[in-house]
Amino acid sequence: MPSHRFLAPALFALALGIAPVTASAQSFSDSQRGEIEQIVKSYLLAHPEILEEVSTELSKRQAAAEALKHEATITENANAIFNSPHGVTLGNKNGDVTFVEFFDYNCGYCKHAMNDMLTLLKTDPKLKVVLKEFPVLGPGSVEAARVAVAARMQDPTGKKYLDFHQKLLGGRGQADKARALAVAKEVGFDMDRIEKDMNSPEVRATLEENFKLAEGMGMNGTPSYVIGKQVIVGAVGLENLKEKINTARCGKASC
């Protein structure tokens, strides 16, 4: 094993003016400090690969810290994340794993990710799926989300909502109020009630809750997921989602 793995910490400590434990009382003059800094610089130029090692280790530690933060946030808000009456629940309502997706009707990646969700819904009978509107891509997205929440309010089974969801998210063009209302009408919702419910406290409470949860978990894009105690941001693909579900189910990527 190359010796630089062991020398580097001591050199960095000296460069920062931090003496080793065995010489904690030692101090350095300006000239000594300059010589040490030059030694460190020369060492790093001769062994630049150590910077990659440091960067990799830092990334690992940051990821671990972020994972712990996510676990704490999920535990604290578990009921709102997995069982909120404001969410749309599909699949096995008593499933052993809950798959939560935050999405935007104008998100191109969400359109592709929808097929992943539908495949999981069809192929995993133990999976509970929860959909949460997270309109982050402008006024049109907010309007479409308000129509979607109003549609959910008159469809407790989620079956008509899922039809609406697929047609709106899978369709072409910008999603906004007009297009969302057209899809709701096509699916067969009570349009007078949709128009009324769009401005209800329930719609406002739903979107406020979803934004609060997403912010608390550091979600900065769509689609984003919560599976078990894991937060996943981005369209990671079907196989990755299956691995996350298995990890939540049995503690490993393949059950």
Rank of each mutant, 00 (worst) to 15 (best):
G87K: 04
P20K: 05
Q62K: 08
L45N: 11
Y109W: 07
S27A: 10
S29I: 05
H70D: 13
N77C: 15
F102N: 01
I39M: 03
T73F: 15
Q32I: 03
S59G: 13
A64K: 10
A72W: 12
V54A: 08
T73D: 14
N106D: 04
T73P: 09
I18C: 12
T56Q: 15
Y105Q: 00
G34T: 12
D30K: 13
V54C: 03
N83E: 11
Y109N: 01
N77M: 10
A80G: 09
L90Y: 01
K41C: 00
Q38Y: 01
P85E: 14
I36C: 01
G34F: 07
N94F: 09
Q32S: 07
R61P: 03
K69P: 07
A72H: 14
G91A: 04
E37F: 02
G95V: 02
S27T: 13
D30G: 09
N79P: 06
N77R: 14
S42T: 07
Q26N: 10
F102K: 02
E71P: 04
A19F: 08
I36L: 06
Y109F: 09
F103R: 05
L51P: 03
L45S: 11
A25Y: 05
P20A: 07
A65T: 01
N79Q: 15
A63E: 13
K60Y: 12
F82T: 00
F103M: 10
S29N: 08
H70N: 14
E101H: 05
L58N: 12
V97K: 00
K41G: 03
V54W: 01
V88Y: 05
S24L: 09
A67M: 15
E57N: 11
G17S: 06
E49R: 11
G34D: 13
I81K: 05
L44Y: 06
E101L: 06
A23H: 06
F82K: 03
A19Y: 08
A23L: 09
S27Y: 06
T75R: 15
T89K: 00
D30W: 11
L44S: 03
D96T: 15
N83S: 12
S29D: 08
D30M: 13
E49S: 08
V54P: 00
I39S: 04
K41Q: 06
G108A: 09
D30C: 04
V54Q: 08
S84Y: 11
E52N: 10
Y43I: 04
Y105S: 01
R33W: 09
G108T: 00
G108K: 04
E66Q: 12
I74F: 11
S24F: 10
A65D: 08
A65N: 08
N79S: 15
S42K: 09
A78C: 13
E52M: 15
T98K: 09
H70V: 02
P48F: 09
A23C: 05
L68Y: 11
K60N: 11
V100Q: 00
D96H: 02
